[in-house]
Nucleic acid binder design. Structure first.
Lengths: 220, 220
DNA sequence: CGAGCCCCGGGAAAATTTCACGACATTGCA
DNA sequence: TGCAATGTCGTGAAATTTTCCCGGGGCTCG
């Protein structure tokens, strides 16, 4: 392990962003980027063929999202090491990712040193969480109020993500390879668990909990 | 102008992402990155002190957002050339950015060549829009997002307002003294007029059009 | 007066939500 | 180790809602 470089698979749907990972990681001795993927399905395929020591992956991607990709990869290889590197500064996402099998969660606002440090920690077998998320997690613990989407299972969370992305039931069934009935069923179950009665309440709850990202457009 | 390299200011709140811009742009002769900023306010300060030939900027940033930053910079220098480079694949945001004075709008999913091409176009005085947004814009022209709630009658708008206030069909029927059946019919008609297929899309459209008071979570 | 909207609601078809049930994996306990 | 107990995922069918199509009454405008 110490003789050869650690091999890394980069997954992000923004090619310029992958370029950024590369640039930062290349400066670090002992690391080598061996492959890149632009979505979860491609990541899964490449993981199976390349067997990298570490996957660095974004969460929000077209098609199957990051959470689902984690599950599939970990199903293939129980020992897979996956580090999530994302813009979502949200404890709920972090909880879901770790629960699905990720070994680390770092936000893109973190300085490059934090990412490098997290990479090293995960390769060493530790769990790595960036400081801002640590803080968020602590807050959500203290807040006590019926916490966010951590009452949802990974599957339910994934369906919720796709619903919020304005996908139809049939489209979601297609991407997850399940029956449309099942998606409708999960949709109903999600609303039940979150205690909302309509899709409208569902979206507004998601907004409050930061599950939806809208840019700040300022005043007109 | 043509003798010296074109100077560029990069603005993005993710340092690793800025690293990506840099890496891509450095391969292109004639371009030189002279400064970086992590938010709109810093971008404005740096623009005044460095007077770059071009600004490449993200939209969603902490503090003052990208749109507001465009306005301030253009207020200081009417000839400023600003290229928006963002993850938001949304025609509405592109329209707002261009209207605020941006000279280009490219999504981060675009390949590096598209970004480089857009940089060159903007430096040459053209307006640059990435193909995916072009397509979105064409769709919205063809009857995609029916402008605002000015296609709705007063009655319909009132029902929409109550729906967004998380009222149930029966409650709305009660307050308006009509049959629940009528409310359901109007609800359906509203979605039809606005060109959305689900309540989730409906809420997000309302958000984009400022019909919903967004919960202000976050920094001062 | 006739044309064009808007508001209101009925009925039937289509889609959805909901409910009840099994298969499967994991956990806890004796 | 054996064996409930629990929780997740998925399906089918019933119950409900949404959608579509329809007509009547009221209103304005040319």
């Amino acid at each position: 392990m110490s003789a050869a470089d650690a091999s890394i698979l980069l997954v992000d749907d923004h090619s310029v962003v992958r370029e950024g990972y590369r640039s930062v990681l290349q400066k670090q001795p002992g690391l080598r980027v061996i492959a890149e993927a632009a979505d979860g399905a491609e990541a899964y395929r490449l993981y199976k063929s390349e067997a990298p020591d570490l996957v660095i992956m974004d969460l929000s991607m077209p098609g199957i999202g990051g959470i689902e990709a984690i599950r599939r990869i970990r199903q293939w290889d129980k020992g897979a090491r996956i580090l999530i590197f994302t813009m979502h500064q949200n404890a709920g996402f972090a909880v879901q990712a770790i629960r699905a099998g990720a070994r680390g969660y770092v936000t893109k606002t973190s300085p490059p040193e934090t990412l490098v440090r997290a990479v090293m920690d995960v390769l060493a077998g530790k769990i790595a969480i960036s400081p801002d998320i640590d803080h968020e997690l602590a807050l959500s613990r203290l807040g006590g109020e019926s916490s966010a989407a951590d009452v949802l299972t990974a599957r339910e969370f994934e369906v919720l993500r796709l619903l919020l992305a304005e996908k139809t039931t049939d489209e979601i069934a297609e991407t997850l390879h399940v029956s449309p009935k099942t998606v409708a069923n999960l949709h109903s179950l999600i609303k039940d668990k979150l205690g909302v009665g309509s899709d409208i309440e569902l979206v507004r709850l998601a907004l409050r909990q930061g599950l939806l990202t809208e840019p700040d457009l300022g005043e007109a």
